[in-house]
């Protein structure tokens, strides 16, 4: 995965960048399966490797697929990134250990979720649609809004005189 990230940062042909990011998404999905997040892995494989690769390619077709040579030397961003990472790693030492069952994240509301109150074996679905239904409603509205925004940005007004509904 580190190799894929490195290649994404330093490849100048955008087509290979997009394909590499698809590869990266699949690797990420396998990591997520190893971390027991099967639902998330499924979504990541379908969205990250499938849909977003296609969208990036579709956008590339409308733009130039070669990146210009960077005009500045990347020393300032590099310095910012390295110092941020040092700070974050230092901060990470205060977090609970990996896989620690006594960590606060496992203590508050989660035992209730795992209690199977609504009799749905897949706890992720139960929490998504029942316990946290307001969250999911909000997310759905966000997706809807993004769709509406894209319609507003990319709709062609002249060519479709009989198609007036919606954005723009």
């Amino acid at each position: 995965m580190a190799v894929a990230v490195w290649a994404i940062a330093f490849t100048r042909n955008l087509f290979s960048v997009v394909v590499l990011s698809g590869v990266y998404s699949f690797l990420m999905a396998t990591v997520l399966v190893a971390l027991d997040a099967v639902d998330v892995a499924m979504t990541e494989a379908a969205v990250g490797a499938g849909v977003s690769t296609v969208l990036l390619l579709a956008a590339l077709r409308l733009c130039k697929s070669e990146e210009a040579k960077p005009a500045h030397k990347p020393w300032l961003p590099l310095a910012v990134s390295v110092s941020t990472s040092v700070l974050l790693v230092y901060g990470a030492w205060g977090l609970p250990d990996f896989g620690d069952p006594e960590a606060p994240i496992h203590k508050n509301v989660v035992p209730r979720y795992l209690n199977n109150e609504v009799d749905v074996p897949n706890v992720v679905t139960a929490v998504l649609a029942s316990f946290r239904a307001y969250d999911t409603l909000g997310e759905t509205v966000v997706v809807f809004t993004a769709g509406a925004g894209i319609i507003a940005l990319l709709r062609r007004r002249k060519k479709n005189p009989d198609n007036k509904g919606g954005g723009a």
Binding site: L55, A129, T140, F144, I150, L154, R155
Partner: peptide, 24 residues
């Protein structure tokens, strides 16, 4: 309730993805 909510989510997500693709 969970069933219908999931149906709603699926319909919106599928529609938005297709619409985005058509647009591009």
């Amino acid at each position: 309730g969970i069933f219908w909510v999931e149906v709603g989510v699926a319909v919106t997500v599928c529609g938005v993805m297709l619409k985005i693709y058509y647009m591009f």
